[in-house]
């Protein structure tokens, strides 16, 4: 496992071409590293630091500052639910409680099957389509628990099929 893998070479080169400094590439590279490792692992920090000519401590501070870099391993589907005021006015708090109960997890927890990590996040700029969440950075909007149960069971069935 490494972001030095050939499959990333073109994308990484394109990022370096965008900016006049190597340091500016740290955020795009952290995304690629997260794609490779599933989270921002110590190896990921090291590799990004070397490519950007930065100290690994500096890279770690960047990874820690932003919420979209995960500093611990997480489930295959990372569900970030907005529970901010506009969403809460349209039932997001109740939706989030039901979602956690259905998956039997606490805030920030991962379901026992390892498939779903759930956490609440701040405003995602989709207030008119609440309740909503982002799953691995893709928005899912106008949700209710029926839709979520269908989604969750579909993903569980998919995972089961892959195992067989």
């Amino acid at each position: 496992m490494s972001i030095h893998d050939e499959k990333y070479a073109e994308r990484i080169a394109a990022q370096f071409a965008k900016y006049p400094t190597k340091r500016s590439v740290v955020m795009p590279l952290l995304y690629i590293a997260q794609e490779e490792y599933g989270w921002i692992s110590p190896e990921a920090i090291q590799e990004v630091a070397e490519l950007c000519d930065m100290d690994s401590t500096q890279v770690k501070s960047i990874a820690g500052f932003y919420t979209m870099y995960s500093e611990k391993p997480k489930g295959k589907h990372w569900l970030q639910v907005c529970t901010d005021l506009p969403c809460a006015l349209r039932g997001a708090d109740e939706f989030y409680e039901e979602l956690k109960a259905y998956l039997e997890v606490e805030d920030g927890g991962t379901s026992r099957d390892g498939l779903f990590t759930v956490e609440h996040v701040m405003c995602l700029a989709a207030c008119d389509k609440a309740p909503m969440l982002q799953c691995n950075f893709h928005f899912m909007e106008n949700l209710d628990m029926d839709k979520m149960k269908t989604f969750i069971e579909e993903k569980r069935a998919e995972a089961k099929k892959q195992e067989e």
Partner: peptide
């Protein structure tokens, strides 16, 4: 013309924090 993706930080909408973030520094 290029796009640059932040990574989840309200403060990066503040112009000088945005510039720091673009430079690969803390936002």
């Amino acid at each position: 013309v290029y796009t640059h993706l932040g990574a989840g930080a309200y403060i990066c909408g503040e112009e000088s924090a945005l510039l720091n973030s673009l430079e690969g520094k803390l936002g």
